[in-house]
Write a protein that binds this DNA or RNA. Structure first.
Lengths: 107, 107
DNA sequence: CCTATATTTGGCTAAAGTTGCAAATAAGCA
DNA sequence: TGCTTATTTGCAACTTTAGCCAAATATAGG
């Protein structure tokens, strides 16, 4: 792998890593439904410390998946990417295909 | 998050984590082009120890992304999932959108 | 049977990621 | 100004992941 090729994969990895955590997937789901949500409400949805949720949101933001805006003392987060539904569709198909083939092995 | 919901995200995470590594993305690219490849040839493409490549392939297999078949002393790996092109298309759009908005901030 | 080759696994170390608590920062309100 | 609330950041402990080397396993071929 040359430098250019490596860089191509690194950028993809950055996004994939940002997605690869249950709490962050949940955050994305909530944001997909509710449009604009503050950190405190997202904290309720996730159920961990607010500082942890804040860090998760920072990761999603750094990856370009969400964006934020400050109104008063609150920070509102918004989903920036629209194609994630299709992406998760593909991932679900991976999961289902895998389960099926495991059943086949067992039978 | 209840148990069921958590499980849903965990299964997605399993696939995303399997994808979230430069070497494994490269492996997927090679397999997408070449159909059936042995570990030794994939090792050349990646440039790390064969044992490391083998572990990467195991991860992809456990996630349901590739499958393998043994012929003689060699093990051939094959891509199992067809929708990854669209998935990466989405990821590229995340990356591009993010770069654009960063340029906007700078200007 | 013995040897060479392909692949996987065990053991180890280094690096990266996760989380909670406490402290810092920022903004509204009395 | 002083107090309260929302959010982020520093720090430390812990878990996970990646990578190499060496050893184990499996198979082909003499």
């Amino acid at each position: 792998m040359n430098k250019e090729e490596k860089a191509k994969y690194e950028t993809r990895v950055k996004v994939l890593k940002a997605l690869a955590h249950p709490a962050r997937l949940k955050l994305i789901d909530v944001l997909a439904e509710e449009d604009e949500v503050c950190v405190c409400d997202l904290t309720d949805a996730i159920g961990t410390d607010m500082s942890t949720v804040s860090r998760h949101l920072t990761q999603l933001k750094n990856a370009g998946i969400v964006e934020s805006e400050k109104h008063g003392q609150m920070v509102f987060y918004r989903l920036k990417v629209k194609c994630l539904t299709g992406l998760f569709g593909c991932i679900e198909s991976v999961v289902e295909g895998h389960i099926k083939s495991q059943l086949k092995v067992l039978s």
